[in-house]
Design a protein around this nucleic acid. Sequence first.
DNA 1: GTTCATATTCGAAGCGCTTCGATTCCCCTT
DNA 2: AAGGGGAATCGAAGCGCTTCGAATATGAAC
Lengths: 340, 340
Amino acid sequence: MVTIVDVAKHAGVAPSTVSYVLTGKRPISAQTSVRVRESIQSLGYHPHAGARALASSRTNVLALVLPLREGVQLPVVMRFVTSVVSTAREQDMDVLLMTAAQGADGLRRVAGGAGADGFLLMDVGLDDERVQVVRELDRPAVLIGHPAAAAGLTCVDLDFEAAGARCVEHLAGLGHRSIGFLGAPGVVYARNTGYAQRTLAGFSTAAMRRGVVSTALPAEPRYDSVHAVVRTLLRELPQMSALVVHNEAVLGWVVECLRAEGRRVPDDVTLMAICPDELAERMRLTCVRLPADVLGRCAVELLVAKLNGQKTPALTLLPPELSSRTGRAFPSGIPGKLIP
Amino acid sequence: MVTIVDVAKHAGVAPSTVSYVLTGKRPISAQTSVRVRESIQSLGYHPHAGARALASSRTNVLALVLPLREGVQLPVVMRFVTSVVSTAREQDMDVLLMTAAQGADGLRRVAGGAGADGFLLMDVGLDDERVQVVRELDRPAVLIGHPAAAAGLTCVDLDFEAAGARCVEHLAGLGHRSIGFLGAPGVVYARNTGYAQRTLAGFSTAAMRRGVVSTALPAEPRYDSVHAVVRTLLRELPQMSALVVHNEAVLGWVVECLRAEGRRVPDDVTLMAICPDELAERMRLTCVRLPADVLGRCAVELLVAKLNGQKTPALTLLPPELSSRTGRAFPSGIPGKLIP
DNA sequence: GTTCATATTCGAAGCGCTTCGATTCCCCTT
DNA sequence: AAGGGGAATCGAAGCGCTTCGAATATGAAC
């Protein structure tokens, strides 16, 4: 193995000088710097991560804790993960993968054993148990999603409440007076999942404010469930002229179910979704974007800022963006491949 | 931070004794062992990963390299990943996440910098560039999927050729004489992806051997593409009584497209798939299982064996398993949530 | 009581890197 | 010409752990 001492000898300098060239923590003359870099190149030197961590108490690793449980939207998770990995590399960090199943002990082990400098917790619920653990850990953490009380934490999330409201504003602006809402599976609401409840709250409040008639129902990821929900919506809202879908998995079925009930999209019912833009693009649907990649980048950057001792806001909410599309929706389509 | 010296003092022993209790590399008397463990507990000691790596030149980390590109089956990847993480933890290892995008330099950096003890490369193609890199790296690696020449490597894969053949055997056994094959998107075949080509080869060879008429076509993940492929298949094979689908993303559409062409499933056409069992279960379809979790476990165990200096077979092929289901298929259904 | 194997445990030397006073060198000022 | 002030570099200590030869304790054997 090539060590920093080998490089130092090869370049005719002290090991500490090589270290300073690499870290930039002290000024090194341009010529020395060049010479050292050449030695590094020609010897194929790579600093030993463990030794570095030991000496500097910085691992340059961030731990990403994924929730791999029922109801997670795989395409969203994957976009998020790739975004996290590539942003982390830009900051010269690596990513340690953990699952929520590893639990509090896992977090304590990694934090205590200097396995990572900080944590990224995905899909945090309203009353998430992990929040308590994070608070007592001495490592910085960034949460994606946010609990009811975000004080003292650092959370990033799409402003789902605004997203729900945005849908109503958009549709009301087009003249719709009776709007349905087809939401996530029941279990997601029962689990006290922040994003689902907030979206619904934003939707309902905005509907009330605009004097729009509305009804909201959860839908399971089965064709018959979706069909039943659509039928119920049409019964409750006979004048329903628009439908907001906040459930990626069943988006493709909704068009068919509406059609099966004699409503054409968009002629009879205007459909819009809260989902990743690629999915909406494929379905040719207007949507409020679910910006997983922006969230990932944002989360890593906040974590790095915290690692550098900067103060970060307790809650960063990304404003919802509307992505407009006109024309005829596809008859169906849940893409299984969202990663380009 | 609690160090091994603190634990040693608390337990009234030498630091080395604590180390031996933890690693089991030398015999320690039962009573001493108990006393040390109690001290570890009460002090909340976690060994410093970097220090350990430095002293022992073992990181207890495995690097998982994921291909996050077009055409990957997200649910399969996710099941694989969770399986890898949990199996790794059983072996007291952590998982470093890398993407194929980090390329050869990324591998060299992590290997050279002692960031991981070994590598797990997922979705290896027939003529994968990464194979060369792995060969010149001094760290052990396990490949999921296998290149044309596996000599000198350690590969794990489902026996896709046997899987393709198995479908034909099953259907021919039921009396079918004319069988269609609806495959992955064209780009997957063009990319020289091993599993797709092998499945097709196994299918075709078996069809020939059994004297079954067959036609195979790729399908893009769009409804209209699937519809077109189904129409073409029915034109080429007017007597087609069975269809094998090796394309998770469009499985849900196939039933509808067949119906749109006047064929009922399973009355007129027997449908079967090569896909994860959960998906087939949801669709109520017979399938040859895609055992992502078994692959993940197997890959980690092989890697650990290599790390311990054991010899491993160049190629481990999992035999395909048939999962039989009878009855009526669902009219549609691409589940967005495969993680239970 | 002494000796010798056996079973445990100790102690010190590093692993490769960062860090921080100390040192050198050079140029500018008085 | 002597002194002072920076800029660049050096040298050594130490991060927390493993490892290996050495030391100690415990019994058994004589």
